[in-house]
C-alpha cells in the first residue's frame, strides 16, 4: 500500500488544482479570495508533506512562509481592500462561468499532454505534481486575462504564483533560504503596490474596473 504521506500529498495537490478551477466559477470577489486562501493552505501542506516524505528540510521553511504570506497576509490585505474601497461584489467577466469552466478543463488536459512526456523529470519522485502545477499556472493566467476587475487580476497573478511554487516544491525541494525569503517578500510588496494603485484608481475614477483603462492605444 502507498504510504500515508504520499496519499495525503496526492490529496493536497488535488486540492490545489480543484481550487484553481473553482476560482473560475466564482461571481463574488470575497469568495474568490477565500478560495485563494484555501489553495495557498493546500500548497503549504504539499510543501510540508514533500519535506517529510522526501527528507527535504528546506521545504518546511517554504511551507511556513506560504502560510504566513499566502494564507494569512495576502488574503487579509485583499479583504481589506474590498472592504475599504467597496469593490462592487459582482466579478465582471469576459467569459461566462460555463465557458470558463470548460476552458479550465482544457488547460488541465493541455498541461498533462505537454508536460507529462518530458523524460528527465521521470527520475524525480514527486514529478507527478508538475502537470498540476502547470495547469494551475495556466488557469491563473486565464483568470487574469478573462476578468475585468483590477483586483481579480491580482488574484489571477497570485494563483499563477501558487502554481509556480507548486512546481518548485515538486521539482527542486526548495531553492535555498535566501531565494525563498525573497520570493515571499516580493509577493508581499506586489500586493502592497497593487493596493496603492487600487486606492489611486478609486480616487480618480471612483471605481476599480480595469476595463475602464483603455485610453492608451496605438
Amino acid at each position: 500500500m502507498t504510504p500515508l504521506p504520499v496519499q495525503a500529498l496526492d490529496i493536497a495537490a488535488a486540492v490545489v488544482l480543484v481550487t484553481a478551477w473553482v476560482s473560475l466559477l466564482h461571481r463574488r470577489i470575497e469568495a474568490l479570495v477565500d478560495t485563494y486562501a484555501i489553495q495557498s493552505a493546500a500548497v503549504a501542506l504539499t510543501a510540508g508533506l514533500v519535506a517529510y516524505e522526501y527528507r527535504a528540510p528546506d521545504l518546511y521553511l517554504l511551507a511556513g512562509l506560504t502560510v504566513a504570506v499566502n494564507v494569512v497576509a495576502l488574503p487579509g490585505l485583499l479583504r481589506r481592500v474590498v472592504r475599504v474601497l467597496g469593490v462592487p461584489r459582482m466579478v465582471n467577466m469576459y467569459a461566462s462561468v460555463r465557458e470558463s469552466a470548460l476552458i479550465g478543463l482544457a488547460l488541465l488536459l493541455l498541461s498533462v499532454w505537454v508536460v507529462g512526456p518530458i523524460a528527465p523529470f521521470a527520475e524525480i519522485p514527486s514529478a507527478g505534481l508538475l502537470p498540476i502545477a502547470v495547469a494551475v499556472v495556466l488557469i491563473g493566467f486565464f483568470l487574469l486575462v478573462s476578468r475585468r476587475k483590477a483586483i481579480t487580476q491580482v488574484v489571477g497573478l497570485l494563483v499563477m504564483n501558487n502554481g509556480v511554487f507548486l512546481a518548485g516544491i515538486a521539482l527542486t525541494y526548495g531553492l535555498g533560504l535566501l531565494v525563498e525569503l525573497g520570493l515571499a517578500a516580493n509577493l508581499l510588496v506586489l500586493a502592497i503596490v497593487a493596493r496603492i494603485f487600487l486606492q489611486r484608481m478609486k480616487e480618480s475614477f471612483d471605481h476599480v474596473d480595469a476595463d475602464a483603462l483603455r485610453a492608451l492605444e496605438g
Partner: peptide, 20 residues
Amino acid sequence: QEASWKYLILCSVGLAFALF
C-alpha cells in the same frame, strides 16, 4: 494610472513565467 497598472500586471505575469 492606466499605463502603470498595465505595466505592473503584464510584467509580473511575464516574470512569473520567467520564474517557472
